[in-house]
Design a protein around this nucleic acid. Sequence first.
RNA 1: CGGGGCGUAGCGCAGCUUGGUAGCGCGCUUGGUUCGGGACCAAGAGGCCGGAGGUUCAAAUCCUCUCGCUCCGACCA
Length: 490
Amino acid sequence: MEQKAGHEKTAQDKDFVKEITPKAVDYSQWYIDVILKTKMMDYSPVKGFMAIRPAGFAIWEKIQELMDRRFKETGHQNAYFPLLIPQSLLQKEAEHVEGFAPELAWVTKGGSEILAEPLLIRPTSEAIICDFYSRWVQSWRDLPILINQWCNVVRWEKSTKPFLRTSEFLWQEGHTCHRTEEEAEAETLQILEIYREFLETEMAIPAIAGRKSEREKFAGALRTYSVEALMSDGKALQAGTSHNLGQHFAKVFDITFLDQDDQLKHVWQTSWGVSTRLIGALIMVHGDDRGLVLPPRMAPIQVVIVPILTKKDRDRVLEAVSELSAKLKEDLRIKLDDREEYSPGWKFNEWEMRGIPVRIEVGPRDLDKNQVILVRRDTGEKEVILRGELSARLPQLLEQIQSDMLKRALEFREANTRCCSDYEEFKKIVEEERGFVIVSWCGDAACEEKVKNDTKATIRCIPFDKKPESDQCIVCGQKAVATAYFARAY
RNA sequence: CGGGGCGUAGCGCAGCUUGGUAGCGCGCUUGGUUCGGGACCAAGAGGCCGGAGGUUCAAAUCCUCUCGCUCCGACCA
């Protein structure tokens, strides 16, 4: 009996989501289907570039709003730097140019004239910003410099995937200068914590914060830290990075200041960023076979009101829902879907696909009983509630959904995080289970390289609070110095 | 950048083997009836078949080149 009922439900669901490939059938196709069907983005005629449509951009605006607030609260200011960088500037830092050279886009012509020096479209702005900073910093009194910019960057990627890896993407990049190494390190870690906390609080995505291995660190950095999230297919995604640049850039760009002790010194720098990739993370962590599932804090529309309009009761239902909508708009992001060309059932499915956290249904029968129906997107649960209690109930319900979503994501990550001390078993886990695998590691890049060649898994990060689980490196058996999270990654 | 798959109406596809009037479903437009989980009827609009060459009396169909999407590798936020 139960099985049959389940079967019928599946058939019905399948009919509804006919244009979204189920996750279990083809995860990548599911991801693309969701993005296209929900009109988050569209491909452009140029490979690797895309239009971010209003449905996707609204999420980016939410990320900007909530992230920017945190930057401002910690003393940062926004600015804007040029799109084009002279070739000679990028070349100053050797590791940096080597790291980015393969994926640079060049401007070689201005109007009809060939440029004397080729310009490159920023793949990241360290070079151009350092050039400015070398003039802006004179005295210890000028420090710290705490500047962020929201902009686009271009990296000529060989293989691209919407939001996760595109040739042009939007991001924020913070670039700071400090008087001491300690101060720069503190800034690097403060930002890392902002990223981790942002992902958890606002996006309901639990993330592991830690340090990158030498192999994975940013080209030109002293140390790179990152926050790493686990997608629902078991692959990891680097969700944000924070770099302690040390004095590498300060020395080649000559960013110096006269300190209180009358000595000319180089500044200590950091840079850090998150990108539109976060939109991809949001989709992959929370989405299901019916489409997007947005955490209430990120949702551009938190509650959609769908009136049930029949010929006889049309006017009084419309009147009731517009009154309701106006009232709720004072505190929440509300959408009233009073279009008459679509049936209620069509609208239910449409808004579910678009991930709106809560739906309110109001029909003639509800009006008669002075009630409305609330439906959660994340669980599908319905509840009937008196109209007078709605204003109090909705914020509470949205908070509940937000915390339930984080809880489920956390449970998923826990269930897919495994400790391991045997290399054969490690290989098996990576191949068959995916997820994070926590292992002890000797710190040698050769062992890291071997793991990558054997399994495609890389060190995602080395968390701060973990001592080695065992005293032997999982690969070579030598003395372990660190505990590392390994995973296959996007 | 290497290997596979795919480009035909806004979307999903058929037609290609064996060259000969470009089709179907959804969507769209107009009118009407509907509306508690993707409503129905009727009448319409919309295409030089990704692009460029070639073969041919004739090319969506055969050949060559190219561009794009997608998947798998290598590279990377």
